[in-house]
């Protein structure tokens, strides 16, 4: 019980100021290491401030002091009771070659589901075009895909001037930003319990399947592979991984068969979702460059065989990266590779 409030505040204030100083330093330099003595002192000051707050809470005449102490205790609480790993200094290579592929593998179930939904969309789009070629305008509402594929191929192969001359960099930047936006949208739609993400993945699959069947039926398979493979083998997996991130979020929201509170489930996956979406952005930067600088050039400028070989190498490297990179560290930590 506090009898003389003023004396109480005067005697305690130096401790509060010291705690505030330590907190400001900790917040400014999150990576600093404290000695055992400093940690003990910090903890003692926190406990003292918390006790002071408990004593002053019922004191109606000191709302300012109470608010100040509440803020102080809240800040110290967040430092002392935080059990999650402290943010380390930025290690881009370690993140790229260890954290990203390991996170991808940790949520592989969501990736297979994302792939399955896209393949279902592909099958639907392909069958629709095969059985009803007139549905093209509905399935592929893009002007450059409306015509006969054979006409387009002939036109592209006979072109003498570079239609992207002087515009490749801006076209590439447009592709990167547009596709990254779509990917973020696929992730964010995970908050609709995954329904929005699934619809987006299915629709992407429908367009892909419809385009593929349209070109195959027109006998332009080689052109199709040469056109899509150099960037598509990176861009399509990137969209699938964005879908994977959205489904990871949806799984956490639904929480089938888990007796963990929603907040805890979301806390578990939050870091992984961000890792995946940053990985997606990186893949889309590469895909954007390839699409603008290589994919739009056809025979006789670039042989189809070379483009298909380039795409195949990219796909193998990407699969190896996602399947094997960082596996040794996973093994060391006793996780599945």
């Amino acid at each position: 019980m506090i009898i003389d409030l003023q004396r109480f505040v005067a005697s305690e204030r130096p401790h509060w100021t010291e705690l505030e100083r330590i907190l400001s330093k900790l917040e400014a330099e999150p990576n600093q290491q404290m000695t055992l003595e400093q940690l003990q002192r910090f903890h003692r000051l926190y406990e003292r401030a918390a006790a002071d707050l408990a004593r002053i809470t019922t004191f109606s005449s000191e709302p300012e002091t109470r608010r100040y102490l509440e803020t102080l205790v809240a800040r110290a609480y967040s430092e002392i009771h935080e059990t999650r790993e402290r943010p380390r200094r930025l290690q881009p290579l370690k993140w790229l070659f260890h954290e990203l592929p390991r996170t991808f593998r940790r949520h592989i179930r969501a990736f297979w589901l994302s792939l399955g939904i896209t393949l279902a969309g592909c099958a639907f789009g392909g069958l629709a075009i095969a059985f009803d070629p007139d549905s093209k305008s509905v399935l592929m509402p893009f002007p450059h895909l409306q015509g006969d594929p054979a006409d387009r191929v002939a036109e592209e192969e006979q072109a003498t001037d570079d239609r992207l001359a002087g515009g490749k960099t801006s076209f590439s930047a447009y592709l990167m930003t547009h596709n990254t936006r779509v990917s973020i949208f696929a992730l964010a739609l995970g908050m609709t319990w995954g329904v929005g993400t699934m619809i987006l993945l299915f629709y992407n699959g429908v367009i892909l399947g419809a385009v593929a069947v349209d070109y195959i039926r027109a006998g332009q398979t080689k052109f199709l592979l040469g056109w899509l493979m150099p960037h598509g083998v990176v861009e399509i997996p990137a969209i699938l991984i964005a879908g994977q991130a959205g489904l990871v979020l949806a799984f956490a929201l639904v929480g089938w068969g888990r007796r963990v509170p929603l907040a805890a489930r979301l806390r578990e996956v939050s870091r992984d979702i961000v890792t995946l979406i940053f990985g997606v952005a990186l893949l889309l930067v590469w895909a954007g460059l390839v699409e603008a600088f290589l994919s739009q050039y056809h025979e006789p400028v670039v042989p189809y065989a070379a483009k298909i070989a380039f795409g195949t190498v990219e796909l193998i490297l990407l699969c190896l990266f996602l399947a094997r990179s960082g596996a040794s560290e996973s093994k060391r930590n006793g996780e599945a590779p």
């Binding site: 967040s78 009771h81 999650r84 949208f185 964010a188 908050m191 609709t192 929005g196 939050s270």
Partner: peptide
Amino acid sequence: VMDAEGFRLQFHQVVTRNLLRFV
């Protein structure tokens, strides 16, 4: 913005809440 349980706000939390603005 603060962590709902009073802990330190983490970078991935900031990114997640800002990316979900899309929805």
